[in-house]
């Protein structure tokens, strides 16, 4: 399958490892990964902060970059960006766009997937040949869980990973407190939520807390680092991309 990879602005700029792993994983599974070079940002931060006029060019750019009919599916290692493309771009296009934009948005929304959805629903795989000999706990991010309804797809992918020690996270479906600009505008409430999430992670004794969104992991990881926790964060794509021949750095360091 010819798959368009959307790196997301955060992934491209600050967390490229997760995007690299996504590209490597899909290529290893026999698919052609294309990266439309004009891509930038989906505009989620604007929309969730209350700005809908300003991101119109971003919504348009996304539709243009990925509208190409030869791209059969669009994947992004982020539940919240996929949620924005599928649910919010139409709101912006309806309100401030033209007919062409509305049509373009509908076309790309229909073929946009978060990574676990693409793997399980579209490509029909749960065993991706990954090897990750570590104790791992999974935090389901809010937008993947309740906006996209990925359900247990990420867990099915993780359970199929060779040598993984997967432990359940207490209070898993509670928000970590990130919420984009919420973490700035209501920093103290966000911190109170984060601390409860960190307590849950600590209770698992996991080496790694994984999730499908680099943004939530940035928040959780920032908190774990501040309290000098021994647990680190790692995007789901990095675990799924790790194999015996090309293990993740974490495995190499431990070996």
């Amino acid at each position: 399958m010819r798959i368009g990879l959307f790196a997301t602005c955060l992934g491209d700029t600050l967390f490229p490892d997760a995007v690299r792993s996504t590209a490597v994983l899909l290529t290893r599974l026999g698919h052609e990964v294309v990266f439309p070079p004009g891509q930038t940002c989906c505009g989620q931060m604007h929309i969730n902060t209350g700005y809908q006029r300003e991101p119109v060019p971003l919504v348009r750019n996304f539709a243009e970059q990925f509208g190409d009919g030869s791209i059969e599916a669009i994947v992004m290692p982020s539940g919240s960006c996929a949620g924005s493309v599928r649910h919010q771009h139409a709101i912006v296009a309806d309100r401030y766009g033209d007919a062409a934009l509305r049509a373009g948005v509908a076309t790309v929304a229909a073929k946009t997937y978060e990574l676990s959805e693409l793997l399980v629903d579209v490509l029909g795989v749960t065993g991706v040949g990954a090897y990750f000999p570590h104790r791992v706990t999974y935090h389901p991010t809010c937008h993947s869980l309740r906006m996209l309804r990925v359900g247990d797809k990420p867990l099915r992918l993780l359970r199929a990973v060779d040598s993984i020690d997967l432990v359940e996270l207490p209070g898993a479906d509670s928000c970590c407190g990130f919420g984009g600009t919420f973490a700035l505008k209501n920093a103290e409430t966000s911190t109170a939520m984060l601390h409860d999430k960190l307590d849950g992670i600590a209770a698992t004794g996991a080496e790694v807390c994984t999730a499908g969104d680099s943004s939530c992991l940035m928040h959780i990881g920032g908190g774990l680092s501040r309290i000098r926790s021994g647990t680190r964060t790692l995007h789901l794509a990095r675990i799924l991309a790790a194999t015996r021949t090309t293990p993740d750095a974490l495995t190499e360091a431990a070996a």
Binding site: H195, G222, G223
Partner: peptide
């Protein structure tokens, strides 16, 4: 944000 969270330095190379 930084009252309770560390931030990783940006990576050397973008995706």
């Amino acid at each position: 944000w930084s009252d309770s969270r560390d931030t990783e330095a940006p990576p050397r190379q973008t995706f």
